[in-house]
């Protein structure tokens, strides 16, 4: 799951190394429009629809948070 997430993140913002960051939002790697793109990519990759109420910056601030959001919304590894 981590590998797929990192791949999708690198497609959205190829200029950043997400594996080196602990907070994508605070460190300026992702903005709200990037999150919209990431949600769309994750929905497609895992054949789910992440609940609109879960589309909050804190749920996409690092790899662990994204994994938790995916699992909460029915993604399987």
């Amino acid at each position: 799951m981590e590998k797929i997430i990192l791949h999708l993140l690198s497609e959205i913002r190829p200029e950043f190394d997400f594996s080196e960051s602990s907070n994508f939002i605070a460190e300026g790697l992702l903005d709200s429009f990037d999150i919209v793109q990431l949600v769309t990519a994750l929905d497609e990759a895992y054949n789910i629809s992440i609940d609109g109420l879960d589309i909050l910056p804190e749920n996409f601030s690092n790899l662990e948070a994204i994994k938790a959001t995916l699992i909460k919304n029915g993604a399987t590894t």
Partner: peptide, 11 residues
């Protein structure tokens, strides 16, 4: 405030 509007609509 796009984020606030989005969250309001989904909620």
């Amino acid at each position: 405030k796009g984020d606030d509007v989005f969250n309001f609509v989904q909620r």
